[in-house]
């Protein structure tokens, strides 16, 4: 079985010329965790994750203090929104490099790659590098488990 058997083909993506604000709106509307960013030729040039967007609002101290358990109230930062300036930047300003697999990739290989690269969602491309689908750990994992019923 290949990854093409367990991917969503109707991929929601965003064009490289769109803004961070537009990307955020898509995340809210579609309730997704990862948004591939494509160029005019439908080639994936990178991804934006929910995490990357939330970094814009995350307080600075979180990246310096290992253990924030003792901070019971985030106080002022709970109500601090990102500045308009950073929301109106192009989405490419927070672009992360993308890791993709081709649609004929085996399931176990795909799952292992996601584990090793710490990915929860992964775009799938065809031989030409065009975006054809997106898969997740749950999609692949469940597909693998479904074959266990045949084990005698």
């Amino acid at each position: 079985m290949t990854v093409s058997s367990c991917m969503k083909r109707n991929v929601i993506s965003i064009h490289a010329s769109d803004t961070v604000r537009a990307a955020a709106a898509i995340f809210v509307q579609k309730h997704i965790g990862l948004l591939p960013v494509v160029d005019d030729g439908k080639k994936v040039i990178g991804v934006v994750g929910l995490r990357d967007l939330l970094t814009l609002e995350m307080p600075d101290f979180v990246s310096f203090i290992e253990d924030v358990d003792f901070v019971h109230d985030f106080g002022a930062v709970e109500t601090t929104r990102p500045e308009a300036e950073s929301l109106d930047k192009p989405v490419t300003s927070i672009l992360k490099s993308v890791f993709t697999v081709e649609e004929d990739c085996g399931l176990l290989r795909a799952y292992a790659l996601m584990l090793q690269h710490n990915l929860h969602d992964m775009p799938v491309v065809n031989k030409k590098g065009e975006l054809v689908g997106i898969t997740s750990r749950v999609d692949i994992g469940v597909k693998i488990l479904s074959s266990w019923s045949a084990v005698e």
């Binding site: 307080p59 600075d60 101290f61 203090i65 901070v71 002022a76 930062v77």
Partner: peptide, 14 residues
């Protein structure tokens, strides 16, 4: 001392 200072200032909003 600096990272925890940053924390205190951020949650105070100063």
């Amino acid at each position: 001392i600096a990272p925890v200072t940053l924390l205190i200032c951020e949650i105070l909003g100063i």
